[in-house]
């Protein structure tokens, strides 16, 4: 399977990275990790990119990293998945409010509503 994982620097996006790497090491999935800046997380794209590279190296899985620079990462993820024939998009998302309500960020929401590709949401 050809998997496109989006990582924007939130805790849940790193959890999605870890789970996807574990899965890829078992299944041999082809993995591309798209990194971008998520306004709901506190990390710039440089930091996200570096942390992602470190985790991929630790895992021993071969994966491609690419950077999304535009201002609408959700839309770019959808376009990449469609134009390059990815089988699945994987995203982490669903932070909890102070009261415990689950809230999806705007990037995750955009992808869920607009992608033509199956999506796995890890939360």
């Amino acid at each position: 399977m050809n998997v496109l994982l989006g990582v924007g620097g939130s805790d849940l996006s790193y959890r999605a990275l870890d789970e996807t790497l574990t899965r890829a090491s078992e299944t041999g999935d082809d993995l591309t990790v798209a990194v971008y800046e998520d306004d709901d997380a506190d990390e710039g794209v440089e930091t996200v990119s570096r942390r992602v590279r470190e985790r991929i190296e630790e895992s021993g899985v071969e994966a491609t990293i690419r950077r999304i620079e535009g201002s609408s990462p959700g839309s770019d993820l959808v376009n990449i998945a469609e134009s390059e024939d990815f089988d699945r998009i994987v995203l982490g998302g669903g932070n909890r409010s102070p009261l415990g309500k689950i809230q999806l960020g705007s990037i995750v929401e955009f992808v869920l509503l607009n992608a033509q590709t199956p999506i796995t949401l890890i939360r």
Binding site: R96, S97, L99, G100, K101, I102, Q103
Partner: peptide, 20 residues
């Protein structure tokens, strides 16, 4: 339930109530 709350199981309900 809405947006994941209230939790369903006894233990999860207690943990959530501890916070709120």
């Amino acid at each position: 339930r809405a947006q994941g709350i209230p939790p369903v199981k006894d233990e999860a309900i207690r943990k959530w109530l501890d916070v709120i």
